[in-house]
Each structure stands twice: as C-alpha cells, then as structure tokens.
Design a protein around this nucleic acid. Structure first.
Length: 901
RNA sequence: GCGAGGGUAGCCAAGCUCGGAAACGGCGGCGGACUCAAGAUCCGCUCCUGUAGAGGUCCAAGGGUUCAAAUCCCUUCCCUCGCACCA
C-alpha cells in the first residue's frame, strides 16, 4: 500500500455497517411512486462475477444518484434460484439443491454487501421458496381460468443432457443446441403444458414501437422473434387425378378434400404450378402408409436441414382455385409442419426456392408478375427461366386480374376466391413451460383417470416440492408418496403432475413481487403496484433480449387483462450492459481468463472496482479489464483522500485570498456539477466520473500553486467532488464527507449539488482558456523563446464583440454595410472595416463568444495556469491598455498575446 | 439472404440525436519539474511540416448535400449480433 492509499477494508466495512444501521436503503411501503431501479436478479451460481459487478454497480450508482436528487428509490434484489445447475451440483455432492442454493445465496449476498450495493434487503425475494413459487402456481391457475393454459401433445425440443424439454427460445443456433449446455437438441413427442403467449403476439409486437427507452437491437430481436407475416390462406382441392384412372377400372378417384395453404403472395396464384406437403402432414402420413417410395423418401431422403429442396411426386393433384387447373402434389422436405399450415402452393416464377425445386422436378415455371413498367408502357413479362422474379409488380398472365398491382391483386383474389381469407401469421409459438426436472415450481395439476388433468384448488396451494431424491430421470417421479394423491374433483386415486415450470416463469413477474414481498394472500399488492410500476430503469445482459424480456412483457399484459395491473409494459427504460472483457475476449471460466471480483475488492477495495468499471466506458459497451487502469483508479482515490484529509487537518483555517485563481476554481466546480449532472441523468457514468476526477486534479493544482487556499472555495470544491463521486464510490466518499463536513448526516442522504451555470457558457469559457494556453505554448515553442519574462494577454475591444453579435444575428445581404452603419463600430475606421470583412467572409461559421467582461474575467482567473507553466507573470489587458500593434490582433474569443523575452 | 448495430489517432474509447477549431478521457511512449535514486505526484508533448499563435493531411473506402461533414445522404468493403429452405 502506498503512502497515499487508504485502508479500504476498514473504511468499507465501517460504512456498510453504518448504512445498515441507518436503514439507508429502505423503501417504506407508503412511498409514493418511487423511482424503480432494477438489475436483473441473478441465478445464485456461487460467486459474483465481473458481469454481475458491472450490472449491479450501474443500478446502484443510478439508484444512489436518484436518491441524492431527492427521489424515493426502490432498489431491491433477489434470487432467480430455481434451475438445473443446482440439481446437478446436488447430485455431484450427494447433497440437495436447496442446501446448495441457499449456500450460494448467502455467499453472493455477502459479496454484494461487500461491494456496497445499497439494496432494500427487506424486499429480498427467493424464487425457490414456497412463499414465492406458490404465486407461480396461483398465477398458473389464473392463466388457466383465462384460457391461457393448454396441455397438448407436441413435438418438443429435448435436451438429452439436461433431460428435459426446452422452449423454442432456449434452442440456439443453426445446429439447434441447448442454450444452457450446448448439447444438440432432439425432438420428442410429449404431453406438455403451454402458456398462450401467441394470443398476445400482435400486441407484443406492435407495442415495441412505443418502447422508446429500449435499445433498438432488443426491439428488433423481439420483432424478429414474433415474426409477423400478413397474407392469405387459400384452399386447394387435393385428390387423385381425374385423368389418372390408368388401370381402367371404374373406381371414383380418391379425394382428400380441401387443403389449406398460407401465402403472402396470393397475387402469384395464377403461377402456382405445384403444391407441396410437409413430410409429416396428415396426407403425407397416409401416403407413407401405402406407398413404399414415398415412405422411403420421408424416412431416408428428406432432410429439412439440408440446403437442397428435396421432394417426391405423388399421384395426387391439387386444383388451383384461381385457374381451375390441376397441378402436381409433392411431399417436400422444405415444407415445415410448424410453419404456416404445413402445406404450400409453389410459385416457381416468383420464389427462389420454389424455382429451384421446380427445376429439379421438371415443373412448369410461369411468370405472372412483371416489374412495374415505366409510364404508360405495357408491362414487360420477365424471363423467369433462369431465376425467379421475387419483387412486387404488376400482374400478368392472370386473366381478369392482369394489370392490377400486386397489392391490388392480393386484395381482389382474397375477396374473389371462396376459400381465401386474409390471415396474419406469427412465428411465435406458445410458451412451453413443462420441464421434467425437480428443482422448479411444481405444476399444480393432478391427473385423474376419471376426470383427466385437474387443477389443484387454490386453497391447496402451494404444492410444495418433496424431498430431493438422487435418481436418474425426474426425481418427482421417484417421490412416490408425494406423487400419489386423490383427485380434488372425484376423490379417486390420482397422481400429481411431475413436471415443473420453466424458471422463466419465476422471472416473468418477480419485479411485481418486490413491491409487497411478504404479502400472503396475493402475489402483490395491486394498488401499490399500480403506483410503483413500471420499472423506471432496468439493467441487465442482453442474452435475455428475447426470452426473459418477452416473457415478462407477456406476463405483464396477461396480468393486466386479469384486472390486477394498470400497466401493460413492465420496463420503461432498458439498458443492456456491455461485457467485461480481457484482452478483447469475453471472460469465461472455460477460457480461464476471468478476473475475480473478490480479489479486486481485497487488493484495492470495492470503490476502486466500481469506479474503474464505471469510468472505463459507457455502460452499454464492452470494455477491457485492465489491471493498470484499476491501479490508476486506486491511486486516484488515494489522492482524493489525501486532498480532503490534509485540508480537513491543516488547511481548513487557511486564509488564502478570494483571488482570480480561486475564482477559476469556483467556476470549474460549477462546471463539474453541471456536466456531471447531465451525464448522470442519462447513465453516462464514464463522462460524469471523469469530470469529477478532473475537478480533483484542478483542486490539487490550485493547492500546489497558492501558498494558502481560499478555504471556502476549496471546501466547496472538495464537497462537490465527494458528492459527484458518491454514487460510484460510496464508501470512501462517505468517510471523507464525515471528515470534511459539519453535517452529522450521511452522504447517502445528502442533496445533490447544484450550480447555476449554462453548459454552453462552460464550453465557451473552457475553450477560451484552453486555446489561449495552447497559443502561448505554441508561440513559445515556435519562436524558440527560452525563458519568457512576461506574458500579456489582450482582450478584444468591446466594439468587436458588438460587431460579432450583430453579425451573428444579421441576415442583411451586405454585412459590411450594415456593420459600418453603426457609429460605434464605424468610428474605428479601417480596423472596423477589416474586421467587418472578416466577419462577412466567415459569417456562416460565426459562433457566439463570451461577453467582453466575462472573457476578461475568465482569462484573469486562468492566468495562474500560464504563470505556473512558464514561470512568468501574466497581465490580462484591455485593448486600450495595450499597444495598438498587439491589440489589433485580438478578436472576441481569441485574445492577442505578446510575450516578452 | 434478411434485419439491427458498429468501423475514430500505437491500444482502449468519447463525440454522431442538434453539421461549425486535429477530435474528451485513459493506457502505453517521449521530454521536463521534484528526488541521492526509484516509486508516487505535478507540468507538457505524442499525424506531418513550421521562421510568434501558421500550413498541410485526417475519423473504414469512394461519392454526394452544404459556406462548412467524424457528425446528414448514397454506394462499397469489413466486423459483431439476431433471424433464416418462414410459404
């Protein structure tokens, strides 16, 4: 530890205790619409990692900032504590998921406390406890009553490693692997429970437009996932060809009746020259049973994942309802039973894939849409022999529809064809929530031979998990005593549902539970929740861009429709925090490139870790962990401590003058407040903290320059620096606040500083000072001045400021003329007309300068910086006080400089 | 293929919403002050040239709009993410 350091361990422990003692983060139940700041609650995996630290530092800093701004703040934390890893860990250790989970929670809660995260722990929720998950069951009940719960036999995604099914959202990549363990997912046919998220597909999609506080990427991903498509359904009569009674017997040709297809391009129906069925379409299955060739195709050739569109021609034909023609029917592997209706009309002229298929199968390719012609020319029928024309255009070869635009044709055809109807289709599937695992919320259903599946009555909830049994398969199946029960309806022997709920059910509404975590007759207090929701600022990783965030939106809407909530969206502003990387790579255990937060806290303290992370980059971008950067941040905190302590110790009775240098410090203090506040408001912690750090640098430079600081100025500067850093580095600032301030209160409760300055003015002032200093350096350097004896800085005369102002406001065509009409300008003769010409030349680029007296003040206040640097006295002069030869070079915003050697 | 977001000096990274000064900050490098010395701290420099504050070239590449472009528009290339035989 260097001399400038401080005992972070002692400081941090002291204030963590003080905050706990003072209940500093408690949000009372009677708070009125507190600012709700929330980080996605963690899965208790054992230890906090850097991603957690970044996530929760962001919410904590923002919550602290809002609190200092005078808001009531709700900033809770909990545990997303059901899930497979606990089960696996329990098996490995021959323990049980509950004990393992609770241990992890204790560890992580301790680590969060040591990071100084200010949570209202009285609102802590733990989803694996019956007090929480009973409300999952209760909500399942309500969803059921609303008709949003279904049990259906479904082809489902099965992860052989996790031994459970997965929702579509949990299957990733082209190879379809499990989101959790990367194992390739298989298909199985199982009876499963689903929630009716598709009923909300339209609203979930359209409401995205209004989520202006969300990142575009997430909004777009959700739109993609929901996958809305507008088109028409249309029926084709399918049967054995009328003309195909080759054997000469008199049997009537077999018919399969109308088969529905979905298309977005009904305008191309006159070009539909084939019809295709999915291999598992009911008709295909019938054909498989009776035709070996088709069976061989379906079982051996069909490859839905391959690049080639494969198919086999059947003896059937389909009647194109627009043309009345019979077109061949294929079973084809690119037709998917879960897309559209599992059957499609093939239009090779206008669809790439249909085109490729038609070429392979020797089907006719007929163009029926032509590009929009220029002007009144006739449409030119495109050549589709080599490739499809896939754009909209004008309809041709389509009888009475010729000449219509694609859009008009879709309208007319949908109206005219009896079996056609407009239809909107979504890619979104119902949410499959059954999991064949132990460590989750038991689905509150009893299966009775007489009554079928029966809901467990509300008064019998919760259905609690039985003791864990270490077994291969589903432990709930092995819990025979728990499993066997009686039917709530008829009293007969019955068995419990042994599936548990997807853990995303837990997290789809947990933000509501924080409002009233202990309520035992409802999941949440309706009235208070209406006041407190929605979450004002939600922060988390974007791996949940679709899953959690979509489920939460759905749950919110569904609950709103049960008249329990007046809000239809849960999260007003969403921030997706960026990754913490090491040398450009994502930290991960498997790569072994992790940095342990615990070690950083031990070595440097929580404040250093927090400040380093916040200052390194904007919160939504990835950044590289750098030990050098951490050290530099740690040294900064040491300097801050030293600066405050030496002032509180000795300098407090300093009686330095309120001289121009002190004035400079004061204006920098105000500037820091204005800039940092603006940045905190929109989560720009990087810029806000840099501003505060820069202020500390200014204070130190000032202290080093003057013999004695102007105590009131310096004290205010220190106080402001401490306050601006308080949200990010709460412990040390709290300690220093106590040492500096007479206030007995805590810094967490202190008021955010204010400053009456205009940001544009701040910019102008800083620019002026910086440019002037640079100019002096330039001159000294370029002119090779060894040892300057005196530096004169001459400000422009008042009339020039006037001229500039006039020029900026003026829209007169002849600016020189207008300026020279003003006597107070004109009387400066050729100097005036020269300047007027300059202004004219640059008139579009003119920008306002500080007012003349403000300019002079700013330069006088900053003169010490130049004196310090060059060891020469600096005079700030008015134009009148200076030599004309020098003064003539001055312009507003750019003083003349004269250096004597 | 479709969609979204990006490409800024040696590296990381602001700025782009609202066009107006080679473009914040950090790291690294160089010089200086302090010091016996090192560390820490402080002051500068860090695209090229420079004779008093200048000139040149610059924000992936190329074009355009504008008095003025890192910022707005178009095209191309590259990166990241999401979706994808989607009917």
């Amino acid at each position: 530890m260097s001399e400038e350091g401080y005992d972070h361990a002692a400081v941090e422990r002291r204030w963590q205790e003080a905050w706990a003692e003072a209940d500093a983060y408690r949000t009372p139940d009677d708070a009125e619409d507190p600012t709700y700041v929330l980080g996605m609650f963690p899965y208790p995996s054992g230890k906090l990692h850097m991603g957690h630290v970044r996530n929760y530092t962001i919410t904590d800093a923002y919550a602290r900032y809002r609190r200092m701004q005078g808001d009531d703040v709700l900033h809770p934390m909990g545990w997303d504590s059901f899930g497979l890893p606990a089960e696996n860990a329990a098996k490995e250790r021959d323990s049980n998921p509950r004990d393992w989970t609770m241990d992890c929670i204790d560890t992580m809660r301790g680590q969060m406390e040591s990071m100084g995260f200010g949570y209202d722990w009285e609102r802590e929720i733990t989803t694996c406890e019956p007090e929480y998950y009973r409300w999952n069951q209760w909500l399942f009940h309500q969803f059921h009553d609303e008709g949003l719960v279904e049990r259906r036999a479904a082809e489902v995604n099965w992860c052989p490693s996790c031994e459970t099914v997965l929702a579509d959202e949990q299957v990733e990549g082209e190879d379809e692997h499990c989101w959790r363990c990367d194992t390739l997912v298989e298909q199985r046919e199982l009876d499963q429970w689903t929630l009716g998220i598709t009923e909300y597909a339209d609203e979930l999609r359209s409401a995205i437009d209004d989520l202006e506080g969300w990142p575009d990427s997430v909004r777009e991903m959700q739109r993609n996932w929901i996958g809305k498509q507008e088109g028409s359904t249309v029926e084709f009569e399918v049967g054995e060809a009328r003309s195909a009674s080759g054997s000469g017997d008199d049997e009537e040709p077999r018919t399969f009746g109308p088969v529905e297809a979905f298309t977005t391009r009904l305008d191309t129906i006159h070009g539909a020259t084939f019809f295709a069925l999915a291999p598992d379409h009911p008709i295909s299955e019938e054909l498989v049973a009776e035709d070996d060739e088709i069976r061989r195709f379906v079982e051996e050739v069909a490859d839905p994942d391959g690049d080639e569109p494969n198919g086999i021609r059947t003896d059937l034909t389909a009647t194109n309802p627009a043309t009345g023609e019979e077109v061949p029917v294929f079973v084809a592997d690119f037709v998917l039973s879960d897309v559209g209706t599992g059957a499609l009309m093939g239009v090779p002229g206008h669809d790439e894939r249909d085109h490729a298929f038609a070429e392979r199968m020797g089907v006719d390719i007929v163009p029926v849409v032509a590009p929009d012609p220029e002007g009144d020319a006739d449409p030119e029928i495109p050549d589709v022999s080599e490739g499809a024309y896939t754009e909209d255009g004008v309809v041709v070869n389509s009888g009475e529809y010729d000449g219509l635009s694609s859009a008009e044709a879709r309208e007319s055809l949908t109206a005219d064809i009896d079996s056609a109807a407009f239809h909107t289709q979504y890619r979104l599937r119902d949410w499959l929530i059954s999991r064949q695992r132990y460590w989750g919320t038991p689905i509150p259903v009893i299966h009775c031979d007489n009554c079928g599946p029966v809901m467990v009555p509300e008064e019998d909830l919760p259905v609690e998990l039985p003791e864990f049994v270490n077994t291969t398969g589903n432990p709930l199946d092995a819990a025979t005593e728990w499993k066997h029960t009686t039917c709530p309806d008829c009293g007969a022997d019955a068995v419990r549902e042994t599936d548990t709920m997807d853990t995303f059910v837990d997290s789809s509404w947990y933000f509501l539970r924080y409002v009233s975590p202990d309520l035992d007759d409802a999941p949440f207090d309706v009235e208070r929740t209406n006041d407190w929701m929605p979450v004002d600022q939600y922060v988390g990783g974007l791996e949940h861009a679709v899953m959690h965030l979509l489920y939460a939106r759905f749950a919110t809407k569904a609950i709103a429709d049960m008249d329990m909530l007046e809000h239809r969206e849960p999260f007003t502003n969403l921030l997706g925090q960026g990754m913490v990387q090491l040398e450009g790579e994502k930290m991960s255990k498997s790569k072994g490139n992790t940095v342990s937060p615990q070690r950083i806290v031990d070595d440097y303290g929580a404040d250093t870790a927090r400040l380093f992370m916040m200052q390194a980059a904007r919160p939504d971008t990835a950044f590289d962990w750098s030990e050098e950067g951490v050290k530099s941040t740690h040294r900064f905190l040491g300097r801050l401590a030293e600066t405050v302590r030496s002032f509180a110790g000795n300098d407090a009775d300093a009686d330095g003058d309120a001289d121009p240098a002190a004035r400079y410090v004061r204006s920098e203090v105000d500037a820091a407040v204005a800039v940092a506040t603006e940045n905190f408001d929109d989560l720009g912690f990087d810029l806000a903290t840099r501003e505060a750090q820069q202020l500390v640098g200014t204070l130190r430079s000032y202290r080093a320059y003057v013999d004695e600081v102007h105590a009131p100025t310096f004290e205010r500067g220190l106080e402001v620096a401490i306050e601006l850093l308080a949200p990010v580095a709460p412990h040390l600032t709290e300690e220093l606040y106590a040492e500096l301030s007479d206030d007995d209160g805590l810094l967490v409760d202190a008021e955010w500083p204010t400053a009456d300055v205009d940001l544009a003015e701040v910019d102008r002032r800083r620019q002026l000072v910086e440019n002037t200093r640079e100019d002096v350096r330039n001159i000294v350097d370029v002119a090779g001045i060894e040892d300057p004896e005196r530096v004169d800085v001459v400000v422009a005369p008042e009339w020039m400021h006037e001229a500039l102002e006039t020029a900026i406001d003026s829209d007169a065509p002849n600016l020189v003329g207008e300026l020279m009409q003003k006597p107070e300008i004109q009387r400066h003769g050729s100097a005036a007309s020269d300047y007027a010409k300059d202004l004219q030349a640059e008139r579009e680029a003119l920008r306002p300068a500080l007012a003349p007296e403000r300019e002079r003040e700013a330069l006088e206040a900053a003169a010490w910086l130049v004196e310090r640097e060059f060891g020469a006295p600096v005079r700030v002069l008015s134009a009148e006080e200076a030599d004309d030869a020098v003064a003539n070079k001055a312009e507003p915003g750019r003083p003349a400089i004269d250096i004597a050697e």
